[in-house]
Design a binder for these strands. Structure first.
Length: 754
RNA sequence: GCCCGAGUGGCGGAAUUGGUAUACGCGCACCACUUAAAAUGGUGUCCCGUAAGGGAUGUGGGUUCGAUUCCCACCUCGGGCACCA
């Protein structure tokens, strides 16, 4: 008997599969296609996380099953490599981020290959490759051309300690994510993308995609669509001809309005005065403050003159920046009214929805701040000419490559380090050939990840980001109901990445370069893997599990099985090194079953049909933990027998192969097959083969289990009742009692009510 | 404050449309094999009780012949949003 040697087996088959390129997707195929996608990793210096193994294995199992079901499968991988950690490392060490990225991707690649994932490595993409970001820049230029990219003076988050502009997502509770310093607002010219123009469609089209409900809910909350009415309140008294427009979702409460509240910016616009009211960033300070502007506004419903206040709880960025205060119906207005002794009307008359204004739709979604004052990102391909203003870099000059710099530290003025490279910055205007300067801001790291799944389809194309025919094949022909077939990723990317990439895709659809209006047909999400004890894995806590070591000791197959068995796929789970042994023991049992195989004996006693059904269904629902427990139960049962017929063993190996590809491949060859188990078709089940001559029925009395009886299948209800009542234990419990009712659930239980 | 999700043995967790609660795995105990240990195999393992039986799925109530599952109220934990008018 040969022992299960995972090191030898895994190395051997990984080499063989790579050599033969068996996981390469075909661009021209008569088979139906399946495009399975995972979020491409950020190659951090910390190496692969066991969480990567979890989500990659899940999609790997689905893709392997699809191949066995006869699909032409695309399961690609790449690197989302622009970003802060690499840049910060460069600032600290002076090593070029490209070098760091190369080193990290090499490590990640090696680690992923050791996991035995069926990626098509020939399509690897890297967002920091100029051949890749050329097209990221190209998409930006198209957006500029269509008026979706524009420059605007806005408040950005500024960390006074790091002297750096921060993205919203880098601000945690009003403080810098890295140094904890309180963030200030600073006005700065930024490139913006008009995602709000797509708000309506981004919301509505969620109806047509197969995303998990909680993902749709989060997207909808983020977009924040609400229908209301815009009402004009005419100003009078101080010689103001203007009116104040108010947005409300409750126009029916207009008779209860006792004041008007303005955002500070709006008040300044109307009166030209600064009232010293500020909207605090500090979220804990929720006390409502206001100043009376002295203006009066006429309520169009009843002609009453209402005082107009500047307040700190109305934002200029939502609605019209002005509200009607209805203290009787709104908690915030009530708090304000009580503090400033304003009247609170109860029992006022209700108005109709559109009686005093016109219906409009508002969104919480804001336009996307697209500029970063950083080095390690895609340069924004724009040139500022003294005469012509902003001029896009001509397409033929793409990509605008990142120049070499000596110092990656941002400048004191908050500009990108690129601003110091005068040779790079100073250019001729493409229009008038006059003196001009390049934009020195770069794109956020959400840019490259907004379209990477399209590049996988045609990664080496030099003429376009991807050939349209290939896009049509892999995304489908139906413009409304297609895209990547199945996209799995983390919940943390539900609002930003998922929304941004849907926005970009819709834009590309509108200009006719992609065939579908939605990028992803189906989206699911995984839970995180936490350290033992349920805390986050982190270097500083020293509780990070390195997958390499687990693979070395137990094998990739064991790690894969363990991570799929660890708990429900969509929930967070705590790592437990002690429990891995169970997955290893299971695989060893499977391995040892080969010595019980008898070639010519037909095996009829045990039903593999149920196992096929359950495992097949569980994979589709991502219930990998119960799929594995089903496989374990089968092995436990079959292990009790003296011999196993080869056909049953082979069917079992096919079911196990997506989970443990290396071992099953090894066994497949040992059984005498020349071809890879990867080319075998997925087992089908035939429920009619399950012969249940005897069925176990539970007998309850008043809902309490008292006995079990065996019945023949298909006997009548009357006979089952007779048999149940005649049971010894049952009759003992029934003696001296009157039977009121008998409930019979077919093939399951009988409940006698006394 | 609002919106999601989850509370089941010592631990990770199972449970079809409401139908045997605790599958599968870890751990633990005992047995076999062994000079011994490890490994492996076997048996047992929610609680009380010798047993018959009784009690348990965060807490309290309800619907039902029957509730982990459905309804109401509350508590705890995780995630998201946050003065959104």
């Amino acid at each position: 008997m040969k022992e299960y040697n995972h090191l030898k087996i895994e190395k051997k088959w990984q080499k063989e599969w790579e050599k033969k390129g068996i996981y390469h997707a075909e661009d021209k195929s008569k088979k139906p296609k399946f495009y399975g996608l995972i979020e491409f990793p950020y190659p951090s210096g910390e190496g692969l996380h066991v969480g990567h193994i979890r989500s990659n294995t899940a999609m790997d199992i689905i893709c392997r099953k699809r191949r066995a079901e006869g699909f032409n499968v695309l399961y690609p991988i790449g690197w989302d490599a622009f970003g802060l950690p690499t840049e910060n490392y460069a600032i600290k060490t002076g090593i070029h981020p490209q070098k760091v990225t190369k080193k990290n991707t090499d490590i990640f690649r090696k680690q992923l290959k050791a996991g035995g994932f069926s990626f098509d490595w020939s399509r690897e993409v890297n967002t920091t490759d100029p051949e890749y970001y050329k097209w990221t820049q190209w998409i930006f230029l198209k957006m500029y051309e269509k008026g979706l990219a524009y420059k605007d003076k806005i408040n950005i988050n500024w960390c006074p300690k790091d002297k750096i502009g921060l993205a919203n997502e880098e601000v945690v509770d009003g403080c810098c994510e890295r140094c904890g310093t309180e963030v200030e607002k600073r006005e700065k010219e930024q490139w913006m993308l008009a995602i709000t123009k797509y708000a309506e469609r981004l919301d509505k089209d969620l109806d047509d995609v197969n995303f998990l409900e909680k993902i749709k809910i989060q997207q909808r909350n983020w977009i924040g669509r609400s229908e209301g009415v815009e009402i004009e309140f005419r100003l009078s008294g101080v010689g103001h001809p203007t009116a104040i427009k108010v947005f409300t979702t409750r126009p029916d409460t207009i008779f209860g309005a006792t004041f008007i509240a303005l955002a500070p910016e709006i008040a300044k616009k109307i009166t030209g005065k600064d009232f010293g009211i500020k909207i605090e960033i500090d979220r804990e300070n929720k006390e409502k403050i206001g100043v009376d502007t002295g203006l009066k506004a006429k309520n169009p419903a009843n002609g009453e003159m209402l005082p107009v206040f500047v307040v700190n709880y109305v934002s200029a960025e939502y609605g019209t920046g002005a509200i009607m205060g209805v203290p009787a119906d709104d908690e915030r207005d009530k708090e304000f009214a009580e503090k400033y002794k304003l009247p609170i009307i109860e029992n006022y008359k209700k108005a109709g929805f559109k009686d005093y204004g016109k219906k409009i739709t508002q969104f919480k979604l804001r336009d996307w701040v697209f500029s970063r004052q950083r080095y390690w990102g895609e340069p924004i391909p724009m040139i500022n000419c003294e005469k012509c203003g902003w001029v896009p870099v001509p397409e033929r000059d793409l990509p605008v490559e990142l120049p070499k710099v000596k110092n990656y530290q941002p400048t004191d003025s908050g500009e990108s380090p690129l601003a110091n490279i005068t040779k790079w910055v100073n250019v001729k205007c493409p229009k008038c050939k006059g003196h001009a300067k390049r934009e020195t801001d770069t794109m956020p790291n959400w840019a490259g990840s907004s379209w990477y799944f399209l590049r996988y389809i045609d990664p080496k194309n030099k003429k376009s980001f991807a050939d349209f025919k290939k896009l049509k094949y892999w995304l489908g022909n139906d413009p409304r109901h297609s895209g990547v077939d199945w996209y799995n990723g983390g919940m943390e990317h539900t609002t930003l990445h998922l929304l941004y990439s849907r926005f970009w895709h819709k834009f590309l659809f509108d200009i006719g370069v992609v065939p579908t209006s939605e990028p992803y047909a189906k989206r699911t999400s995984h839970g995180m893997i936490l350290a033992e004890g349920g805390v986050k894995m982190s270097k500083s806590k020293g509780n990070v599990i390195n997958p390499d070591e687990i693979i070395k000791i137990y094998g990739a197959d064991t790690l894969r099985i363990y991570e799929m068995f660890i708990g429900p796929f969509d929930q967070s789970v705590a790592w437990s090194t002690d429990s891995i042994i169970g997955s290893r023991r299971f695989l060893e049992r499977v391995w040892n079953l080969q010595y019980k195989v008898q070639k010519n004996k037909k095996y009829t006693e045990f039903e593999i049909e149920k196992t096929i059904k359950k495992v097949s269904e569980d994979i589709e629902e991502m219930k990998f933990n119960t799929a594995i427990s089903t496989l374990m139960i089968f092995v436990n049962e079959i292990g009790k027998l003296d011999f196993i017929s080869q056909d049953v063993y082979e069917t079992f190996l096919k079911l196990l192969s997506p989970f443990a590809p290396h071992m099953t491949e090894g066994l497949w060859k040992i059984l005498g097959h020349k071809n890879s188990i990867n080319f075998e078709s997925w087992p089908v089940y035939d429920l009619s083969k399950i012969k249940n001559k005897q069925i176990k029925i539970v007998v309850q009395i008043n809902g309490k289990v008292r006995a079990e009886i065996m019945i023949r299948a298909e006997i009548s209800e009357e006979e089952v009742k007779k048999q149940a009542i005649s049971n010894e234990t049952v009759s003992r419990h029934l003696s001296g009692k009157e039977i009121k009712k008998v409930i019979y659930v077919k093939n399951r239980l009988i409940n006698i009510v006394v």
